[in-house]
Amino acid sequence: MADTGFLPKEKLKDFLEALSKDAVVYAPALEGDIVLFKEYSQGKDLYLDRPANLGPKSIIYPQCETLLSFDFKKNDPEDPKKVDIELKTESNFANTVVFGCRPCDAKGLVIYDKVFIDTDTADPYYKERRDKTTIISFACEAPFAGCFCTAVGGGPADTTGSDVLMTDVGDGFFFEALTEKGKAVLKSVPMQDGASYKEKAQKIKSEAEKKIRNPFPKDATEKLSQKLFDSDEFWEKVVSKCISCGACTYLCPTCYCFNITDEKTKDKGERIRTWDACMFNHFTLETSGHNPRPSKLKRFRNRVGHKFLYYPEKYNGVIACCGCGRCIRYCPASVDISEIVGYLKDPKQK
Protein backbone atom coordinates (compact mmCIF):
# COMPACT_ATOMS: atom_id res chain seq x y z
CA MET A 1 0.00 0.00 0.00
CA ALA A 2 1.39 3.32 -1.02
CA ASP A 3 1.11 6.46 1.05
CA THR A 4 -1.74 7.66 -1.11
CA GLY A 5 -5.06 6.22 -2.10
CA PHE A 6 -8.36 6.95 -3.75
CA LEU A 7 -11.92 6.09 -2.81
CA PRO A 8 -15.04 6.76 -4.88
CA LYS A 9 -17.57 8.81 -2.90
CA GLU A 10 -19.96 5.92 -2.36
CA LYS A 11 -17.17 3.94 -0.68
CA LEU A 12 -16.47 6.56 1.97
CA LYS A 13 -18.83 4.98 4.49
CA ASP A 14 -17.12 1.61 4.03
CA PHE A 15 -13.91 3.31 5.06
CA LEU A 16 -15.52 4.80 8.18
CA GLU A 17 -17.06 1.49 9.08
CA ALA A 18 -13.72 -0.25 8.70
CA LEU A 19 -12.11 2.39 10.89
CA SER A 20 -14.76 2.04 13.56
CA LYS A 21 -13.91 -1.63 14.02
CA ASP A 22 -10.66 -0.74 15.78
CA ALA A 23 -11.35 2.74 17.05
CA VAL A 24 -13.99 5.20 18.10
CA VAL A 25 -14.56 7.37 15.05
CA TYR A 26 -15.77 10.94 15.29
CA ALA A 27 -17.07 12.58 12.16
CA PRO A 28 -18.98 15.77 11.43
CA ALA A 29 -22.77 15.43 11.41
CA LEU A 30 -25.69 17.81 11.16
CA GLU A 31 -27.48 18.56 14.45
CA GLY A 32 -30.42 20.68 13.45
CA ASP A 33 -28.72 23.48 11.54
CA ILE A 34 -25.30 23.18 13.10
CA VAL A 35 -22.41 20.82 12.46
CA LEU A 36 -20.85 18.90 15.35
CA PHE A 37 -18.43 16.03 15.67
CA LYS A 38 -20.42 12.96 16.63
CA GLU A 39 -19.44 9.40 17.24
CA TYR A 40 -19.85 7.62 13.94
CA SER A 41 -22.00 4.56 13.83
CA GLN A 42 -23.06 2.40 10.94
CA GLY A 43 -25.28 4.05 8.40
CA LYS A 44 -25.02 7.47 10.05
CA ASP A 45 -24.99 10.49 7.75
CA LEU A 46 -21.82 12.48 7.38
CA TYR A 47 -21.77 16.18 6.79
CA LEU A 48 -18.69 17.54 5.06
CA ASP A 49 -20.07 20.64 3.34
CA ARG A 50 -18.73 23.16 5.85
CA PRO A 51 -16.51 23.18 8.93
CA ALA A 52 -18.09 22.12 12.21
CA ASN A 53 -19.36 24.89 14.49
CA LEU A 54 -17.21 23.38 17.21
CA GLY A 55 -14.12 21.59 15.92
CA PRO A 56 -12.71 18.34 17.23
CA LYS A 57 -10.84 20.01 20.10
CA SER A 58 -13.33 18.67 22.63
CA ILE A 59 -12.45 15.09 21.68
CA ILE A 60 -8.78 15.47 22.57
CA TYR A 61 -9.20 18.21 25.14
CA PRO A 62 -12.68 17.65 26.59
CA GLN A 63 -14.62 20.59 27.93
CA CYS A 64 -14.95 18.76 31.24
CA GLU A 65 -12.80 15.93 32.54
CA THR A 66 -12.04 14.38 35.89
CA LEU A 67 -8.42 14.92 36.92
CA LEU A 68 -8.77 12.84 40.04
CA SER A 69 -11.45 11.47 42.28
CA PHE A 70 -11.34 11.03 46.02
CA ASP A 71 -13.09 8.96 48.64
CA PHE A 72 -13.44 10.10 52.23
CA LYS A 73 -13.06 7.05 54.43
CA LYS A 74 -13.53 6.65 58.14
CA ASN A 75 -11.18 3.74 58.72
CA ASP A 76 -10.66 4.16 62.45
CA PRO A 77 -13.67 3.13 64.58
CA GLU A 78 -11.88 4.48 67.66
CA ASP A 79 -11.65 7.93 66.15
CA PRO A 80 -14.77 8.76 64.12
CA LYS A 81 -13.46 12.24 63.38
CA LYS A 82 -10.44 10.91 61.52
CA VAL A 83 -11.02 10.93 57.79
CA ASP A 84 -8.64 9.23 55.40
CA ILE A 85 -8.64 10.36 51.82
CA GLU A 86 -7.99 8.02 48.93
CA LEU A 87 -7.07 9.52 45.60
CA LYS A 88 -7.68 7.86 42.27
CA THR A 89 -7.05 8.67 38.65
CA GLU A 90 -8.56 6.83 35.78
CA SER A 91 -7.72 6.58 32.15
CA ASN A 92 -9.84 4.67 29.71
CA PHE A 93 -9.48 6.53 26.46
CA ALA A 94 -9.95 4.23 23.51
CA ASN A 95 -8.10 4.47 20.22
CA THR A 96 -9.81 7.23 18.30
CA VAL A 97 -10.02 8.56 14.79
CA VAL A 98 -11.12 12.11 14.07
CA PHE A 99 -12.44 12.10 10.54
CA GLY A 100 -13.17 15.13 8.42
CA CYS A 101 -11.90 17.99 10.50
CA ARG A 102 -10.32 20.85 8.60
CA PRO A 103 -6.58 21.52 8.34
CA CYS A 104 -6.98 24.53 10.65
CA ASP A 105 -8.49 22.27 13.33
CA ALA A 106 -5.51 19.93 13.09
CA LYS A 107 -3.09 22.83 13.24
CA GLY A 108 -4.77 23.93 16.46
CA LEU A 109 -3.78 20.64 18.07
CA VAL A 110 -0.13 21.33 17.31
CA ILE A 111 -0.49 24.62 19.18
CA TYR A 112 -1.83 22.62 22.15
CA ASP A 113 0.96 20.03 21.88
CA LYS A 114 3.61 22.63 22.63
CA VAL A 115 1.77 23.72 25.77
CA PHE A 116 0.56 20.38 27.10
CA ILE A 117 3.27 17.98 25.94
CA ASP A 118 6.51 19.85 25.18
CA THR A 119 7.08 20.90 28.77
CA ASP A 120 8.69 19.45 31.86
CA THR A 121 5.24 19.18 33.43
CA ALA A 122 3.43 17.46 30.56
CA ASP A 123 -0.29 16.94 30.92
CA PRO A 124 -0.79 13.15 31.01
CA TYR A 125 -4.51 13.35 30.22
CA TYR A 126 -4.04 15.37 27.06
CA LYS A 127 -0.99 13.39 26.02
CA GLU A 128 -2.76 10.05 26.25
CA ARG A 129 -5.65 11.20 24.10
CA ARG A 130 -3.38 12.88 21.59
CA ASP A 131 -1.23 9.76 21.29
CA LYS A 132 -4.25 7.54 20.78
CA THR A 133 -5.93 9.72 18.18
CA THR A 134 -5.47 9.71 14.43
CA ILE A 135 -6.47 12.83 12.56
CA ILE A 136 -7.89 12.64 9.05
CA SER A 137 -8.31 16.17 7.79
CA PHE A 138 -10.37 17.28 4.84
CA ALA A 139 -8.79 19.94 2.62
CA CYS A 140 -10.95 23.01 1.98
CA GLU A 141 -11.73 23.84 -1.62
CA ALA A 142 -12.78 27.38 -0.84
CA PRO A 143 -12.86 29.62 2.20
CA PHE A 144 -15.87 30.09 4.47
CA ALA A 145 -16.96 33.38 6.00
CA GLY A 146 -14.22 34.82 8.17
CA CYS A 147 -11.48 32.33 7.19
CA PHE A 148 -7.90 33.66 7.02
CA CYS A 149 -5.71 30.58 7.51
CA THR A 150 -3.03 31.53 4.99
CA ALA A 151 -2.39 34.84 6.75
CA VAL A 152 -1.34 33.04 9.94
CA GLY A 153 0.93 30.46 8.39
CA GLY A 154 -1.64 27.78 7.58
CA GLY A 155 -3.60 26.94 4.49
CA PRO A 156 -6.71 25.18 3.19
CA ALA A 157 -4.64 22.02 2.63
CA ASP A 158 -2.02 22.54 5.35
CA THR A 159 -0.77 19.22 6.70
CA THR A 160 0.42 20.39 10.13
CA GLY A 161 -1.06 18.18 12.83
CA SER A 162 -2.87 15.80 10.47
CA ASP A 163 -2.08 12.14 9.99
CA VAL A 164 -3.98 11.93 6.72
CA LEU A 165 -5.07 14.66 4.35
CA MET A 166 -8.13 13.98 2.24
CA THR A 167 -9.02 16.00 -0.86
CA ASP A 168 -12.27 15.96 -2.80
CA VAL A 169 -11.23 15.36 -6.42
CA GLY A 170 -14.74 15.34 -7.88
CA ASP A 171 -15.70 11.70 -8.30
CA GLY A 172 -14.07 10.66 -5.06
CA PHE A 173 -11.53 11.40 -2.36
CA PHE A 174 -7.77 11.39 -2.63
CA PHE A 175 -5.97 10.37 0.56
CA GLU A 176 -2.40 11.15 1.54
CA ALA A 177 -0.83 9.56 4.61
CA LEU A 178 1.40 12.04 6.40
CA THR A 179 2.52 9.97 9.38
CA GLU A 180 2.92 6.34 10.39
CA LYS A 181 -0.46 6.53 12.11
CA GLY A 182 -1.87 7.83 8.85
CA LYS A 183 -0.38 4.98 6.85
CA ALA A 184 -1.92 2.51 9.25
CA VAL A 185 -5.46 3.82 8.89
CA LEU A 186 -5.26 3.91 5.11
CA LYS A 187 -4.60 0.17 5.23
CA SER A 188 -7.88 -0.52 6.99
CA VAL A 189 -9.82 -0.55 3.73
CA PRO A 190 -8.79 -1.54 0.21
CA MET A 191 -8.21 1.66 -1.73
CA GLN A 192 -7.53 2.28 -5.36
CA ASP A 193 -4.10 3.51 -6.27
CA GLY A 194 -4.06 7.24 -5.65
CA ALA A 195 -1.08 8.14 -7.83
CA SER A 196 -3.15 9.23 -10.82
CA TYR A 197 -5.14 11.68 -8.66
CA LYS A 198 -2.14 13.32 -7.07
CA GLU A 199 -1.78 16.03 -9.65
CA LYS A 200 -5.48 16.86 -9.68
CA ALA A 201 -5.54 17.10 -5.90
CA GLN A 202 -2.51 19.34 -5.97
CA LYS A 203 -4.23 21.64 -8.43
CA ILE A 204 -7.39 21.85 -6.32
CA LYS A 205 -5.33 22.62 -3.25
CA SER A 206 -3.32 25.39 -4.82
CA GLU A 207 -6.48 26.90 -6.37
CA ALA A 208 -8.04 26.90 -2.92
CA GLU A 209 -5.08 28.64 -1.41
CA LYS A 210 -5.47 31.55 -3.82
CA LYS A 211 -9.07 32.06 -2.73
CA ILE A 212 -8.30 32.68 0.95
CA ARG A 213 -8.46 36.33 1.89
CA ASN A 214 -5.54 38.07 3.51
CA PRO A 215 -7.08 40.39 6.07
CA PHE A 216 -3.81 42.17 6.76
CA PRO A 217 -3.03 45.39 4.92
CA LYS A 218 -0.46 45.45 2.14
CA ASP A 219 2.04 47.35 4.27
CA ALA A 220 1.56 45.00 7.22
CA THR A 221 4.71 44.20 9.13
CA GLU A 222 5.61 40.89 10.70
CA LYS A 223 5.74 42.50 14.11
CA LEU A 224 2.81 44.08 15.89
CA SER A 225 3.09 47.69 16.97
CA GLN A 226 3.85 47.61 20.69
CA LYS A 227 2.80 51.23 20.98
CA LEU A 228 -0.67 50.57 19.59
CA PHE A 229 -0.91 47.35 21.58
CA ASP A 230 -0.29 49.30 24.79
CA SER A 231 -2.83 51.99 23.94
CA ASP A 232 -6.09 51.82 25.89
CA GLU A 233 -7.64 54.16 23.37
CA PHE A 234 -7.02 51.66 20.58
CA TRP A 235 -8.61 48.80 22.47
CA GLU A 236 -11.56 50.95 23.42
CA LYS A 237 -12.12 51.72 19.78
CA VAL A 238 -11.96 48.13 18.55
CA VAL A 239 -13.58 46.16 21.37
CA SER A 240 -16.20 48.40 22.97
CA LYS A 241 -18.75 46.23 21.19
CA CYS A 242 -17.45 42.97 22.72
CA ILE A 243 -19.95 41.49 25.18
CA SER A 244 -17.32 39.54 27.17
CA CYS A 245 -18.80 36.11 26.51
CA GLY A 246 -16.81 32.98 25.91
CA ALA A 247 -18.03 32.04 22.42
CA CYS A 248 -14.79 33.05 20.69
CA THR A 249 -12.53 31.16 23.06
CA TYR A 250 -14.65 28.03 23.41
CA LEU A 251 -14.98 27.64 19.65
CA CYS A 252 -11.32 28.47 19.06
CA PRO A 253 -9.10 25.50 18.07
CA THR A 254 -6.11 27.12 19.77
CA CYS A 255 -7.64 28.44 23.01
CA TYR A 256 -6.92 26.11 25.90
CA CYS A 257 -7.28 28.07 29.17
CA PHE A 258 -8.96 26.04 31.86
CA ASN A 259 -10.38 26.01 35.34
CA ILE A 260 -10.00 23.38 38.03
CA THR A 261 -12.78 22.95 40.58
CA ASP A 262 -13.67 20.43 43.23
CA GLU A 263 -17.08 18.87 43.59
CA LYS A 264 -18.12 16.57 46.39
CA THR A 265 -20.98 14.69 47.90
CA LYS A 266 -21.00 13.26 51.40
CA ASP A 267 -18.29 10.63 51.08
CA LYS A 268 -16.69 11.22 47.71
CA GLY A 269 -15.81 13.86 45.22
CA GLU A 270 -13.76 14.75 42.22
CA ARG A 271 -11.45 17.40 40.91
CA ILE A 272 -12.54 18.44 37.45
CA ARG A 273 -10.88 20.42 34.73
CA THR A 274 -13.18 22.53 32.55
CA TRP A 275 -12.61 25.01 29.75
CA ASP A 276 -12.46 28.56 30.96
CA ALA A 277 -12.24 31.80 29.04
CA CYS A 278 -9.91 34.77 29.49
CA MET A 279 -12.81 36.97 28.39
CA PHE A 280 -14.68 36.38 31.65
CA ASN A 281 -14.18 38.81 34.50
CA HIS A 282 -13.89 36.02 37.07
CA PHE A 283 -11.00 34.41 35.21
CA THR A 284 -8.36 36.54 36.91
CA LEU A 285 -10.43 37.89 39.80
CA GLU A 286 -8.57 37.41 43.08
CA THR A 287 -10.18 36.68 46.42
CA SER A 288 -9.19 40.11 47.68
CA GLY A 289 -11.33 41.67 44.94
CA HIS A 290 -8.23 42.80 43.04
CA ASN A 291 -8.39 41.98 39.33
CA PRO A 292 -5.24 42.40 37.24
CA ARG A 293 -7.37 42.47 34.07
CA PRO A 294 -10.44 44.29 35.29
CA SER A 295 -11.97 45.46 32.01
CA LYS A 296 -12.94 43.78 28.77
CA LEU A 297 -10.37 45.95 27.03
CA LYS A 298 -7.55 44.47 29.13
CA ARG A 299 -8.96 40.98 28.72
CA PHE A 300 -9.31 41.26 24.98
CA ARG A 301 -5.83 42.70 24.75
CA ASN A 302 -4.56 39.67 26.64
CA ARG A 303 -6.38 37.32 24.26
CA VAL A 304 -4.85 38.94 21.19
CA GLY A 305 -1.52 39.23 23.01
CA HIS A 306 -1.56 35.57 23.96
CA LYS A 307 -2.12 34.48 20.37
CA PHE A 308 0.06 36.94 18.52
CA LEU A 309 2.76 38.04 21.00
CA TYR A 310 3.14 35.93 24.12
CA TYR A 311 2.81 32.49 22.58
CA PRO A 312 5.20 33.35 19.70
CA GLU A 313 7.63 34.75 22.29
CA LYS A 314 7.63 31.42 24.09
CA TYR A 315 7.48 29.11 21.09
CA ASN A 316 9.86 30.33 18.48
CA GLY A 317 7.59 32.74 16.64
CA VAL A 318 4.66 30.36 16.17
CA ILE A 319 1.35 32.24 16.14
CA ALA A 320 -1.35 30.69 18.32
CA CYS A 321 -4.12 31.30 15.80
CA CYS A 322 -5.05 28.95 13.00
CA GLY A 323 -7.23 31.41 11.08
CA CYS A 324 -10.33 29.20 11.16
CA GLY A 325 -12.52 32.29 11.49
CA ARG A 326 -14.90 30.81 14.06
CA CYS A 327 -14.37 33.64 16.56
CA ILE A 328 -15.39 36.06 13.82
CA ARG A 329 -18.26 34.01 12.39
CA TYR A 330 -19.96 33.26 15.67
CA CYS A 331 -19.20 36.47 17.58
CA PRO A 332 -22.46 38.00 18.86
CA ALA A 333 -21.08 41.44 18.01
CA SER A 334 -19.07 40.42 14.91
CA VAL A 335 -15.77 41.45 16.47
CA ASP A 336 -13.09 40.65 13.88
CA ILE A 337 -9.75 39.64 15.36
CA SER A 338 -8.10 39.66 11.93
CA GLU A 339 -9.05 43.29 11.48
CA ILE A 340 -7.64 44.14 14.91
CA VAL A 341 -4.36 42.36 14.23
CA GLY A 342 -4.29 44.10 10.85
CA TYR A 343 -4.32 47.48 12.60
CA LEU A 344 -1.58 46.33 14.95
CA LYS A 345 0.51 45.25 11.98
CA ASP A 346 0.01 48.54 10.18
CA PRO A 347 -0.93 51.23 12.70
CA LYS A 348 -1.07 54.04 10.20
CA GLN A 349 -4.34 52.82 8.71
CA LYS A 350 -6.07 53.11 12.10
Binding site: C257, F258, D276, C278, T284, L285, E286, T287, P292
Partner: peptide
Protein backbone atom coordinates in the same frame (compact mmCIF):
# COMPACT_ATOMS: atom_id res chain seq x y z
CA UNK B 1 -5.16 33.74 40.94
CA UNK B 2 -3.76 30.35 39.98
CA UNK B 3 -5.25 26.98 39.19
CA UNK B 4 -2.81 24.53 37.61
CA UNK B 5 0.43 25.90 39.08
CA UNK B 6 2.41 24.54 36.11
CA UNK B 7 2.01 27.24 33.48
CA UNK B 8 -0.87 25.70 31.53
CA UNK B 9 -4.23 27.04 32.63
CA UNK B 10 -3.52 30.54 31.39
CA UNK B 11 -4.80 32.84 34.11
CA UNK B 12 -1.71 34.02 35.99
CA UNK B 13 0.20 35.35 33.01
CA UNK B 14 1.64 38.82 32.77
CA UNK B 15 2.45 39.01 29.10
Amino acid sequence: RMKCGIGLCGRCNIG
